[in-house]
Computed example of a mutant assay.
Amino acid sequence: MKWSWEQPDWPNFLYESKALAPLEQSFLVQSGEFVGACKHIGAGDREVLKIELISEEAVKTSKIEGEILNRDSVQASLRHQLGLGPQTPNIDPAERGISEMIVDLYRNFANTLNDATMFAWHKMLLADDKKIRVIGGYRTHEDPMQVVSGPDYKRMVHFEAPPSKRMTDEMIRFITWFNDTAPNGQTPLPALTRAGIAHLHFLCIHPFEDGNGRIGRALAEKSLAQNLNQPSLIALAYTIERKRKDYYAALERNNKELEITAWLTYFANTILEAQRNTIERVDFFVAKARFCETFKGQLNERQNKVITRMFKEGMDGFKGGLSANNYIKIADTSRATATRDLQDLVEKGAFTKTGELRHTRYALSLGEDRRGQ
């Protein structure tokens, strides 16, 4: 079977706009909800939230590609890039590079797309990769560019991209389309439709030796930000990474045909889920701020250490809740002391308690009915 780029009408993608209309409307509604949620956050806390959101995207977009980064290092690099902190020594090149790319995307989302932007991103991501022949430029090798899996004797080809000799022409056409379909372009497209086509089109070309997935997701974020006229801060990579197999399966299902309604529906729903995840994370951030303010000065050093660790787990928290054994290990204390501390936290309204005996579990009390308020 031919690949999408081998079809006679490539890259004229076909889709049913009516199927996407309600999803586009939901995107606009949820965008308003996000703006409303952020209004409850002060300017200083907003900067902290911004770092948390974009650092999570940086870590997750790399994890999708199998690259595990240190979140604290990424956040330190982001703070420096955004002028919010000093330069931290010994930051890994991969962590510094993804931070530089995300900050460039955040600051310059409104700029028209060009080769120079993507070449700069590529250099940021892969400057220290000794295996890449062309860094900061489109691929030139003669070997087929394939996405494969399995051992050499039983290799499965999931996708093959256009030959390298076509990269210049393919990318001229892609960049022209991207800029023409922007809100102020000649043929503007709705937000979800444009982001979905941009991501799939770019990955079908696969113009770089490596880094195509991360740059392709950045282009989807850039597209959404342009349609919103502000940095999206949407948890797209965070959401994709949680269902990574579905993401790769959807790409594979839609790399052989130009009719892409199914892909656009999948990607639009993924973006809507990402929006909801972002709104939940903002709510969690607000609840965390309220919690810390409510119990400021009321907790001992051990309790603060455990609570800090719990907040670091994010919205998902400890799977199944915090146990007494968890508390003992984190606080480095005795069982008797842990029992007193946990009882005190429940009485103050900082923790909620479920279960009995060895099944007892504790969770942070982030609702509005805390007795400590």
Rank of each mutant, 00 (worst) to 15 (best):
R335C: 09
T337D: 11
T339H: 13
K348D: 00
A324N: 13
K329G: 02
T337L: 08
G349P: 14
K348A: 04
N326I: 04
D341R: 03
A336K: 15
K348P: 00
F351H: 08
I328Q: 04
K348F: 00
A336P: 10
A338Y: 09
T352H: 05
L342T: 02
Y327V: 11
V346I: 06
Y327I: 03
T352W: 05
Q343P: 01
N326G: 09
N325Q: 15
N325E: 06
A336C: 02
D341Q: 09
Q343E: 11
K329C: 15
D341G: 05
I330E: 11
I330P: 03
S323K: 13
L342N: 01
I330T: 03
N325K: 13
I330W: 13
A338M: 05
A350S: 02
S334P: 05
I330L: 05
N325G: 06
K329W: 13
A324C: 07
S323Y: 10
T339I: 11
G349I: 04
I330K: 02
E347H: 09
R335A: 14
K329S: 15
T333A: 10
V346R: 07
R335I: 06
T333C: 04
D332Q: 14
T337P: 09
A336S: 12
T352S: 05
T352D: 10
A324T: 06
T339C: 12
T333W: 15
A331Y: 08
D344E: 04
Q343L: 12
S323N: 09
G349R: 03
L342K: 00
S323Q: 14
R335H: 10
R340T: 12
I328D: 02
S334E: 13
D332L: 01
A338H: 13
T337A: 07
K329H: 14
N326Q: 15
D344T: 02
A350T: 00
A336E: 12
S334D: 07
R340W: 03
D341A: 07
D332W: 05
A331L: 10
A324S: 14
D344L: 11
D344R: 11
T333M: 15
D341M: 01
D344F: 09
A331C: 13
T339D: 12
G349S: 08
Y327D: 04
N326H: 15
K348N: 06
G349E: 01
A338T: 06
S323I: 03
L342Q: 08
N326Y: 09
T333S: 08
A331S: 06
K329P: 04
L345S: 02
G349C: 01
T352Y: 06
I328H: 11
Q343A: 12
G349V: 02
